[in-house]
């Protein structure tokens, strides 16, 4: 998984899902899943209103 989700911060608002250019994020109510389409562009990280996302390995 290339995007890490901090579930302590995540407000499951879906801003990252709409920002993702590859449709690689799936928000099922409160659970945010990242699939293999992720290209690590970082738009979800930038678009998150509360900085709950980061690129993996960073």
């Amino acid at each position: 998984m290339s995007v890490e989700v901090n579930f302590e911060k995540c407000m499951h608002c879906g801003a990252c899902v709409g920002a993702c250019p590859e449709n690689a994020l799936f928000l099922n109510d409160v659970a945010l899943e990242v699939n293999e389409n992720c290209i690590e562009c970082g738009l979800c990280v930038k678009g998150c209103p509360v900085q709950a996302l980061s690129l993996g390995g960073a």
Binding site: G14, V17, F26, K46
Partner: peptide, 22 residues
């Protein structure tokens, strides 16, 4: 906003980042 139905169906692509408000 986070619509996936249209994208799964191949109807359209992502929103340009300049048109996204967070």
């Amino acid at each position: 906003f986070e619509s996936q139905v249209g994208r799964w169906a191949g109807l359209y692509e992502q929103i340009p980042s300049k048109d996204i408000m967070t």
